[in-house]
Every structure is written in C-alpha cells, then in structure tokens.
Amino acid sequence: MIRIEGLTYSYGDGVNALDGVDLEVRDSELLAIVGENGAGKTTLVKHLNGLLKPQRGRVIVEGVDTKETTVATLAKKVGLVFQNPDHMLFAETVEKELSFALINFGLQPEEIAKRVEWALIEFRLSNYRDRSPFTLSGGEKKRVSLASVLCYDPQIIILDEPTTGQDNLQKTRLASTLTKLNRQGKTVIVVTHDIEFVADFIPRVVVMSRGKIIADGPTEEILVRKDVMEASSILPPQLADLSWKMGLNTPSINSEIIVEEIRQMLRGEQK
C-alpha cells in the first residue's frame, strides 16, 4: 500500500514540480500515470523509492515513511525501471546484469541461478545470456532492464515508459507479464505517454498536469473526458477522438462498443 499526502516538491527553480499531491495505491493494483512532459510524473515516482524525499507532505510505502528509511531498504520493496536502459545497464553480459542486484542483496547462488533463469525465459532473453547488453537492440535492452528489476522480486514495480521502441507484439507480451505479476499480488505502476497501451491494458489511470493530479479513476471513464485530455495536453486514444467526432453520447475506448454504436447508428439511418 502506498499513501501520498500533500506531497510538494521543487527542484529549486521557483516552480513546484509537485504541488500538493494526494494519492492512494492499494496492494496489487495496476495503474498508469500519464501527463505531458514536466507534469511531475517522474518526480512523483522518485518519491516512492526514496530517491527524492518530500519537502512538504508525506509518502508512506508499505507502512513506512520514506523520510525514515534509506533508498537501500526501499529498493528491496520498490523496483524502479528507468526509461532509458542505457542509464541502467552496465554489466558485461545479460546474465551478469540480471544477477547483479541479487548478489548485492546477498541471496544464495542457487536462488540467484533460479531467478535469473526465470527472467531469461519470461523476457525471451535466453539466447542473449552471454551477450553484452550494449550490443542488443533498443527493445531488447528495455527487456533486460525490466528483467533485472523483476529478478529481485520487489513488491511494488514502477516502470517509466516501458513501451518505447517496442513493437505491437512486444507490447502485448509486456502487458501480459504486467497483468500476471499483478495477479500474483504485485503493485504495478506504469508511467507512460503511450495512451493506446493504457487504453488497452491498464485498468486505473492517474492524470497529472503541472504538478497536480487532475483526474484519477477507471481508464475507460477518464480517457474519454475531453476536458481532462485537453488540460493535460495528452493526445486522446484514437477511439475517444472518434467517439467525440461522431458525437456519441457515451464515448468509449472499446472497439467492440464503438462497432456496435456505429452499427446502430447506420441501422437507424436505414429505417
């Protein structure tokens, strides 16, 4: 469980990167945080693993105030996967990359081997075990960085822009991995610009703009709100846009619903 109360943070440039943010995330939720660049998304998630400490307000992660603990302690509970894998990867081989944190956490060699094996299979990296991560494609590096965090089994997993450079098939696979982890009880938070990915796979969405949360709720309700999409300069999902342009009373991001709506409209015309 994560509880954020009145969180305010400024990088000292006279602007509040976060401005009185309240947010509650229950155990085993799957949610997305969206918003324009500079909205405060990354600043917010950096508070969850203690990289940043609140200047005002509180951040409670699994019952612990982040001000009263260290990044090292929080890191075991909260795994943060950064946007640019080049900033995370450093080991000589994919296998070493995956086992690095596990060795640091002092796990037994058999346990390390088991978890690395799991990650290599889960992220389809088995063929790259002995390859240098830096020789991999952008999408593959992304999978290695994600695998390296999931390996140490944090309770809360935060992914910053996990879908960049991923094709459709990989996105679908990523979504099923996230859903699976979520079903196993993990809390999964995805920070993303990929609104179609959110529309298709993430049940709850938090919309940020200029350091504040301006909407929070079920994805299918939030992403069809024109006022919210405009206020946060998010390009709406294509089907929300279509719904507005067709003047639907109940806009939707679900293609089956849209197909049905159009069919009824066309039937009405034939009478």
Binding site: K171, L242, I258
Partner: peptide
C-alpha cells in the same frame, strides 16, 4: 503489426 484502432473498427464494420 499494431493496426490503428480506426482500421480495426473499419474492418469489423
């Protein structure tokens, strides 16, 4: 390949 939603809807229709 990730077909745009509008393409998916048009095909179904």
């Amino acid at each position: 390949v990730g077909l745009p939603k509008v393409v998916q809807v048009s095909k179904r229709l």
